[in-house]
Design a protein around this nucleic acid. Structure first.
Lengths: 334, 334
DNA sequence: GGTACTTTTTACATCGTTGGAACAACGTTG
DNA sequence: CAACGTTGTTCCAACGATGTAAAAAGTACC
């Protein structure tokens, strides 16, 4: 059924290795033989057995991408870009979902044997430093997104503190004085980064920080954003602006505001984070921090490729990719 | 660096094959030896080389999933479920994106050699019958979603015609008489199915069909939905209800209605299709056809597994998975 | 103790590919 | 024409695992 090098070789009347040489573009093959081999290749429809080739070469041709859940728009979009970037360099991507739980993240990390994949891009959510394999025997890892953890591995992300600062400064520049935040969550590294940016922007704007205005969110999903927003709006003195730690929370917040009969941005201005595609179409459209996801994906693939092909032991890199504040209706009106 | 069976065997003082036997749960191993091998396995941290094992077994352990784009919520959600379902059966999933173009779909299909993956789930958008490999030499394929094409391969989907019928009947039951549709696209199989359901529901409700009320959409993305809705609303006699062929179009339509200063559902009722997570949070929340995506993913994995492990030549199956009409604010008010 | 049988272990070939060494063919040169 | 370097090809081993079959060890029975 399946065509192997041997079949092609028999048909072309040369040795297996010569066929292999043609397939791999080895220079010194007699034109006559090359032609015959190529004909035989075409005639049989030969396709190399990737497994065998990789066994021999000690590579698998696969990269793993570990994310919480593909159904979360940010990760769906990112995964799509990672796959595209990987494909350009000849890698195939295998996706592992962890639901953002530390247990599953740890399990996934330790299951990424050197035989299954050549390298991995991991986007941890709850992982701690202790969970990372300390012996360097494993495969190259690149961490995506913010790490609270201090592990010596390659890392790509935007400057979360700065981005949060920019978002909140924007709200302050509109003259808002009671600026709340939604998304506090001690288990998530990203949360503390964005919180830091939030605080520094408040300070810079001469506003005071108050714990009451920082709503927690167990998960950064729409429903939790709505719930958090409702509790903020029923405070004795409710906020006139909210910085949500991601767009999903913000979408939930938009709904909560509407359900309470208030208006965005007149009564409450809202800024999100991630620039999900849906956020350009919400009513009102969401002002948000827009990370350059393409740059993120490409930088990550770049780093992991470099680690795999040589440069094994260069010092860990820390790459920052650009972002922009995308101003839309939720802070500026229509 | 890497631990192989040989290393474990040396450490345990037995042959390679005995270790292999222990690893694979072969029954006849002396308890004493089993213990020693297990200790050695633990001590060395042995992990089987998947590539080598698969080379020997003639399997790769991978399935491919071909979708247009992960950044489209429906496919992000579906891919997540497929990966989860596959993992339960011990498969890893490789994702290929085609951007929904026939050229890339065809290319992807033909590149799915039997060595890279053991089977594939394909969600074509523009593919035609001629593009499918006619010789049965390849790997098992399962088609997801609607096929306009008549190819003898396994297939899982909801009943699109019926679902569209249900959606439109719901609009008619609200007393709407000028029911439009958005999403006509001759290049997409799904489009004609949903259009058929739309027409049959109009007939059943005693309403007349009019080409003017069926707006085309080159892509089923939010922006195209907004554009289509705008053109419908500027007709001499605009619709009082719209059936959008997917949720993204509907989300775009919601925005267009709002931008023209009209209200949903008072002026125009809107129904979508797919039940994306975001649709429960749009303003107003979207009434939509909710396919059971989990059932879809599991049925697909089930079919492809069965094909791979035996049952090679059973007649092609056609599995229909359930759906429901999810009624929300866009047709019922808040 | 010998025979027949079962249980346990091992040696060997094999999956499809590629790296390296060995070999063959060729044209050049002294 | 012998010696040599350059090209082109083949042979063999190896990647790490498992299936097969044969060898070894153990058990039961006469």
């Amino acid at each position: 059924m399946t065509v192997t090098l041997k079949d092609v070789a028999t048909l072309a009347g040369v040795s297996v290795k010569t066929v292999s040489n043609v397939v791999n573009g080895y220079a010194f093959v007699k034109p006559e033989n090359r032609r015959r081999v190529e004909e035989a290749l075409a005639a049989t429809g030969y396709r190399p057995n990737v497994g065998a080739r990789n066994l021999r070469r000690g590579r698998t041709g696969f990269l793993a991408l570990m994310v919480p859940e593909l159904s979360i728009p940010y990760f769906g979009e990112l995964a799509g870009l990672v796959i595209t970037a990987a494909q350009k360099r000849g890698w195939s991507v295998l996706i592992e979902q962890t639901q953002g739980t530390r247990e599953r993240e740890r399990k996934t990390l330790s299951s990424l044997g050197p035989h299954l994949v050549d390298g991995a891009l991991v986007h941890p959510e709850a992982l701690e430093a202790a969970d990372f394999p300390d012996e360097p025997g494993g495969i190259p890892l690149v961490m995506l997104g913010e790490h609270a953890v201090d592990v010596p591995i390659d890392h790509v992300a935007i400057d979360n503190v700065l981005a949060a600062h920019v978002a909140v400064s924007h709200l302050a520049s509109l003259g808002r004085t009671r600026i709340a935040a939604i998304g506090r969550n001690p288990a998530r590294g990203t949360s503390s980064q964005r919180l830091a940016g939030y605080r520094s922007a408040l300070v810079e704007a001469g506003l005071s920080y108050s714990d009451t205005l920082v709503a927690p969110a167990e998960k950064w999903h729409r429903g939790y954003g709505a719930a958090a927003m409702k509790s903020l709006l029923t405070l004795p003195s409710p906020p006139d602006a909210v910085f949500c730690f991601n767009d999903l929370l913000a979408i939930g917040a938009l709904r909560a505001v509407a359900e309470l009969g208030l208006r965005v941005p007149e009564d409450v201005a809202i800024v999100g984070f991630d620039n999900n595609e849906e956020s350009a179409f919400s009513l009102p459209a969401l002002t948000t921090i827009a990370p350059d996801k393409t740059a993120l994906a490409e930088a990550a693939i770049d780093l992991v490729s470099r680690r795999i092909t040589g440069e094994k032991s260069a010092p860990p890199q820390d790459v920052q990719t650009p972002f922009a504040l995308e101003i839309r209706e939720s802070t500026k009106g229509r």
